[in-house]
Every structure is written in structure tokens, then in C-alpha cells.
Design a protein around this nucleic acid. Structure first.
Length: 413
RNA sequence: GGACAGGUGGCCGAGUGGUUAAAGGCAGCAGACUGUAAAUCUGCCCGCGCAAGCGUACGCUAGUUCGAAUCUAGCCCUGUCCA
């Protein structure tokens, strides 16, 4: 779906299109015209199932940022109400329910990240955060059926991918989950009616849900609203973004240290560098084109830029600088950096096995031993293959490594 | 409520009484090669233990058996069809 950029007159669609955010738009010309003449309030919904979003949501967050950058108004919709139901999209099993308190806590925690990337306030293009529990929670069942239920046919609902997937796999889909798309449609209509929102954006898997909302707004209120989706973001080797060995790449600092966050971007596949720079940084396009063109091992310089820029946006400039310095000291200098995970060793000695576990490089003693036996454990850069090895510490820090990328420090307290 | 089919390690998926801590694949970890990349090849991949070994594990519970993931009964859960 790559429209030619020059066809757009609004800076919003031009920017989104140039940087690779657009997969589908319901009415590109209509939206373009609207964005060219007025402030378009646009929203994206986010789940509140965890205390932090991960980088799978970063495209959406960045899209809200682009919206604001081009003079429009971002609306962050927290799914306080819909999280109580659970989005069946992309899931082949039901998800367990969360308590109200957990959901509220999650929303508060997630909010911190948005505050870094968007400017909140009361001005016409300031971002606002809303919670759909505020209106969904008030809806009675009968009321919901009357208001919304009459505009959805089961025939149509059954054709949605999220539903078909379950049915095809002969997995259960509860009636509760089946209602998710109705509520999401209701959100759009509600925001269009009460907050002047004209655009919903989201991942390509949200297309169906978005279209539902558009139809609902049109049928109930005669309101014309628009939808836009981003391409499904996978890494060059086809994996969904945001999952790594250790788990998800969380946006919140307390869920994932800045060092690990920075490292994720530093280790991105060569083929992803340009695309990620466009999506996840504010660097100008010609600068990105230059970085992307770097060949061979020079592309590593571009990866450092990517890691720095993204970390700066999400975690702050200090975090980015510290991570870069640590990387330089650790990988180029063969020393240790401040940001590496560390373990205090007050006793003056520690078994290598315990050090590996303490630093989080191994989950059990057996795993640590296997790592050592396989030649993957290093002390001060020297591979140690003796499982019973004990490290003696004097005054200085000792550098422990698992493989080539994971490094940590033992501090003699 | 009835009939039938199922519930195996992070995921997929073999396995119908002992040689099964459970084939194979994916994911993951490490080694080699490199550029903290990809691809490829090699090793590892439940826990404790130096080890012999021990402990857990095939939906849950109770049985049959010298011995069960495999057989029996009850229960829970899921799917398909019927009411």
C-alpha cells in the first residue's frame, strides 16, 4: 500500500507515508484533505494488561508523536474497560482476567512513557489520555445491546480474523471476548461524538476493529471518521518485534534496565536499521539514508545511532549516554562500564557458578555449569571450563561474561 | 443433557505397560566463522548433586500392576455433532 508521497497535501500523511507507517487507510484523500485544513484529533488504544508496554507498541506511540509533530492532537486511549474483557486479536487462547486495581496500577505506570514522547496539556494540539472504563463502565447491558448491538451482525462478526482464527484452530472463544470488537467500535464512536476525534490508528491487526468503529459512527451519528493502520512490524528474520530471549523489550525503566534496552537496538538485524531509524527516531530522512547506506561492518555505526536515538526518546538522554559509554568501555575497551549488571561480593570470593546465577546469566546451577562446560563463561575475558572455579576478589572489580554479549561485574563490596 | 474426539516439556508434535526425563521440529543458550549482524556448522537445553544417584514431570484424584504418559474408575477442562 505505498501511495506516492507527492500525492498528499497534508504534512501528516506525507510524514507518515515517508517514514513507513502506513499500511492501510480507509479514505486517504478524505483524511488528507481534513488534515490539511484542520487539527485532527486522532487516537490509538492501548491495553493495560501489564505495568509496561513493550516495543511492539512503540510504532503506535511514535505515530501519535508524528501526529503531534505535524500539528494535530494525539489522544491516548487506555483500555481500562476493554482490558477487563481481553482482546482476542492475535491470541489463540483466552487471557486471564485482571483485577480492577491491577488495571489502574498498570495504567498509571504506562502513562510515564507517554509523558516522555508526547506533550500533554490543555492546548489544542496537546496530548490527552483517556480511559474507556469511564464510559464503558457506565453502560448497562441492555443499553449496550440497544445502542451498539443493533449495528453489528453476527454474520459479519464471524468473518473477522480474530474470530476465524479461533474457530479454525478449534479453540474456545467466549462470548465475553466476542464482544470486544463491539466495545472497541463503541470507543471510536464515543470519542468522535464527545471529543471530536476523527481518526483512529493502530496495527494492521486492528483494521477490522477500526472499521467497525467507523461504521458505527457513521450509522449512529452520521459522523465521518477515518482509520489508518501500520504494517505488522516484524524483524527481518520474521519474528514479531519486541520478544527476546529474556522476554519482552519493555519500555518502562523499572521493567527493563536502560542498558538492555539500548543493547536490543544495538543488536538489530542489518536489514532492519533503516526502517527502524525512520519509524523510531526523529532523525531527518537524508541522514537516515546516509546511515542506511553504510556497508559491511560500518553499518554498526548506524546501529549505535539507532540505539542512542531510541533510548534517548524512551529513556532520556542520560540513559542513552550512559549505555553508549558502557558499550564503548565493554566491547571496544574490553573493560567494564557503569551500566553493566553488577553483583556485590562482600566475602572476597565467589564460585563462578554463583556469580553467573547472581548476575542473571543462568537460571539454575545446572544451567550455569553447562554454560561453563560449553566454554561460554569468561572471567576477565578468559574462558573458564572448570565448573568448580572460584573467583578471588581483591580490591578491583572482576568482569564476568556469558558469551560475547552478556557482561557483568563483580564488586568486592 | 447425549454421542464422539482430545488434554504430553516455552510452543508445535510423536509416543498405547518396562530399554521414556519422554522422538522430531521451532524458539532459546553457548562454541566456531564474523561486525555486539545474517547465514552456516557443532554442542547444550526439568531441578539438586563432582559423581553413582535422588527428586519432580505427560489435566486432577483414586486404583490395577513388580512396573503406568501409556490400563481402569470418577472428576475437571476443550472441541465437534446432536438435543
Amino acid at each position: 500500500m505505498t501511495q506516492n508521497t507527492s500525492a498528499y497535501t497534508s504534512s501528516l500523511l506525507r510524514l507518515l507515508s515517508e517514514r513507513g507507517y502506513i499500511h492501510q487507510v480507509t479514505d486517504a484523500e478524505g483524511l488528507d484533505a481534513l488534515a490539511a485544513k484542520q487539527i485532527v484529533p486522532g487516537y490509538i488504544g492501548f491495553d493495560a494488561t501489564a505495568p509496561s508496554l513493550h516495543i511492539g507498541s512503540l510504532v503506535q506511540i511514535m505515530m501519535l508523536r508524528r501526529l503531534q509533530q505535524t500539528g494535530h492532537k494525539p489522544v491516548v486511549l487506555m483500555g481500562g474497560g476493554t482490558t477487563r474483557i481481553g482482546d482476542p486479536t492475535g491470541r489463540d487462547e483466552s487471557r486471564k482476567m485482571l483485577s480492577d486495581q491491577t488495571i489502574e496500577d498498570n495504567i498509571a505506570s504506562i502513562r510515564q512513557v507517554f509523558a516522555r514522547l508526547l506533550t500533554f496539556g490543555d492546548g489544542p494540539t496537546d496530548a490527552v489520555m483517556v480511559n474507556n472504563h469511564d464510559w464503558l463502565g457506565k453502560l448497562g447491558y441492555i443499553e449496550l445491546l440497544q445502542e451498539v448491538g443493533t449495528h453489528f451482525t453476527v454474520n459479519r462478526m464471524l468473518t473477522f480474523d480474530s474470530v476465524k482464527l479461533r474457530l479454525d484452530r478449534e479453540q474456545p472463544m467466549t462470548f465475553l471476548e466476542f464482544n470486544y470488537m463491539i466495545l472497541q467500535g463503541y470507543d471510536f464512536r464515543h470519542l468522535a461524538l464527545h471529543s471530536g476525534v476523527r481518526l483512529q490508528m493502530g496495527g494492521s491487526d486492528q483494521w477490522g476493529n477500526i472499521v467497525n468503529g467507523i461504521e458505527l459512527a457513521r450509522r449512529k451519528d452520521g459522523q465521518e471518521v477515518f482509520g489508518l493502520t501500520t504494517p505488522l512490524l516484524t524483524t527481518a528474520d520474521g519474528a514479531k518485534m519486541g520478544k527476546t530471549a529474556a522476554g519482552a523489550v519493555w519500555l518502562n525503566e523499572n521493567a527493563l534496565p536502560a542498558w538492555d534496552f539500548w543493547q536490543y537496538w544495538r543488536n538489530v538485524d542489518d536489514r532492519d536499521v533503516g526502517r527502524f531509524l525512520r519509524l523510531f527516531t526523529d532523525l531527518p530522512l537524508d541522514e537516515i539514508a546516509r546511515l542506511e547506506a553504510l556497508g559491511g561492518s560500518e553499518i554498526n555505526a548506524a546501529k549505535v545511532v539507532l540505539a542512542n536515538e531510541v533510548t534517548k526518546l524512551v529513556r532520556g538522554a542520560d540513559a542513552a549516554a550512559a549505555a553508549e559509554a558502557t558499550a564503548a568501555a565493554t566491547f571496544a575497551g574490553g573493560g567494564v562500564g557503569q551500566d553493566l549488571p553488577s553483583l556485590a561480593c562482600p566475602d572476597g570470593s565467589i564460585a563462578l557458578v554463583d556469580a553467573l546465577i547472581g548476575l542473571g546469566f543462568a537460571a539454575s546451577r545446572g544451567e550455569a555449569k553447562r554454560l561453563i562446560a560449553g566454554g561460554g563463561a569468561r572471567v576477565e575475558g578468559q574462558a573458564i571450563t572448570d565448573e568448580a572455579h572460584v573467583i578471588m576478589l581483591d580490591a578491583a572489580d572482576v568482569r564476568i561474561s556469558s558469551g560475547k554479549k552478556k557482561h557483568g561485574v563483580l564488586r568486592p563490596a
